[in-house]
């Protein structure tokens, strides 16, 4: 539907976190990315599927470039990509802020291909805001934040 209240926090099941981690590890040292298909439940966003996208950048160790076409799941969805060098920030860079044309962006900080931090941002009208992101470990009621480096 069209007009909905912004989500408060985001849940990514462990199996989808593992799928993201595997994609990042496989692509390293190239930056990896793709989409998480999601659905809204009780004012929260729940990831339901993982769609990796090939990196089309000319310099894939510094950039992640992909086209949003029929491969992308319907909205709501989260666009994710990895930052693969130890010198890169764990959050959004200026390029990310300006050039990710999506409502939700997940940045996975993964130097040497090992994810150390997951930070999720929602694009507002004028700026990006960070949202809590976590996973359900042992049951639907139990929510644990994913590792986060500031």
């Amino acid at each position: 539907m069209g007009v909905l209240l912004p989500v408060g926090r985001v849940t990514i099941p462990r199996r989808i976190v593992h799928a993201v981690d595997d994609n990042i590890a496989t692509e390293h040292p190239r930056e990896a990315g793709g989409f998480l298909a999601c659905e809204r439940r009780d004012g929260r966003l729940h990831a339901t599927g993982h769609v990796p996208l090939p990196n089309e950048a000319a310099d894939p160790e510094r950039r992640f470039v992909a086209t949003v076409d029929e491969r992308a799941p319907s909205e709501p969805r989260i666009c994710y990509h990895s930052h693969t060098s130890a010198s890169t920030p764990s959050g959004l860079t200026d390029i990310d802020r300006r050039m990710i044309p999506e409502r939700y962006a997940l940045v996975v900080f993964a130097p040497r291909g090992d994810p150390h931090s997951y930070r999720l941002f929602r694009r507002g009208l004028l700026r990006w805001r960070e949202l809590p992101v976590g996973h359900t470990r042992s049951g639907p009621g139990e929510w644990h934040p994913l590792p986060r480096l500031s």
Binding site: E31, T67, V68, T93, I95, M99
Partner: peptide, 8 residues
């Protein structure tokens, strides 16, 4: 739309 992102 084209996504352009990157750590650098």
């Amino acid at each position: 739309r084209t996504i352009v992102a990157g750590g650098d």
